[in-house]
């Protein structure tokens, strides 16, 4: 009798344990599946989704706008990278908490702005992409624009997902690295994109001579990098 109850209890314990294991396993499965679904439903970056057809004429092979990524500007408005088509873009990447280098980079871009005539400025836009999407909310970017006295009819500041930012940076050869204090080390490159989003010129280094860059912007013909 005693033996029988021992066996019964042992079987009971076994059964409960097996149920427990099976239950945890399925819940792990379910949660990892759910996670996968989440990831899938997240906006996919350039490379994981098929590119949508652009309503305008087809983008050139060399257009950075092939990335087709979604961004948010300093007013919180959503835009697609292809919306930058139509004007020459003078761009760099910054983070708003940057105290030293970024204001100089922005100032270098402003020097370019100052040298262009009103007529020339009509065909030009100044775009700053953040590399710090965690902290650079649209509000923060707007504040940065105000502190830097940027004319928001010509300037825009854009943020996106980490992955999309990395894609764009990679195409522009812009290198950056987050440091432990929350700041970023990064390249100091100003890039010029033509109306189609092709990289036509890069100016590397701070406070450089801007004549060549100006020439490229003024020249209607495409030029090599």
């Amino acid at each position: 009798m005693k033996k029988l109850s021992v066996i019964i209890i042992a079987i009971l314990i076994l059964t409960v344990s097996v149920i427990y294991i099976v239950a945890t396993e399925t819940s792990v499965d379910a949660s990892s599946r759910a996670e996968l679904q989440d990831k899938k439903s997240e906006k996919e970056s350039c490379c994981s989704s098929d590119m949508e057809e652009v309503s305008m004429s087809e983008l050139s092979e060399n257009s950075l706008y092939q990335l087709n990524s979604d961004w948010t500007n300093q007013f919180g408005n959503k835009i697609n990278l292809t919306d930058l088509r139509g004007r020459k873009q003078i761009v760099t990447m910054i983070f708003a908490n940057c105290t030293y280098v970024c204001p100089i980079l922005v100032n270098d871009m402003r020097r370019i702005e100052d040298r262009l005539s009103k007529e020339e400025l009509k065909n030009v836009q100044f775009t700053l992409f953040t590399i710090d999407p965690e902290r650079d909310t649209p509000e923060k970017l707007k504040e940065f624009a105000q502190n830097q006295n940027l004319n928001l009819s010509r300037w825009q500041l854009l943020t996106s997902s980490k992955s999309d930012i990395a894609d764009l940076a990679a195409l522009m050869g812009f290198r950056y690295k987050k440091e432990n204090d929350g700041s970023y080390s990064h390249s100091n490159i100003i890039s010029i994109l033509n109306e189609e989003g092709e990289l036509i010129h890069q100016q590397a280094g701070l406070s450089q001579e801007i004549e060549k860059t100006l020439n490229v912007i003024r020249n209607q013909n495409k030029q090599g990098v």
């Binding site: 690295k177 080390s185 990064h186 490159i189 590397a204 280094g205």
Partner: peptide, 11 residues
């Protein structure tokens, strides 16, 4: 791309 970022430029 986080390697080599301290230089002032690539050039």
């Amino acid at each position: 791309f986080n390697a080599l970022v301290s230089g002032e430029s690539r050039a």
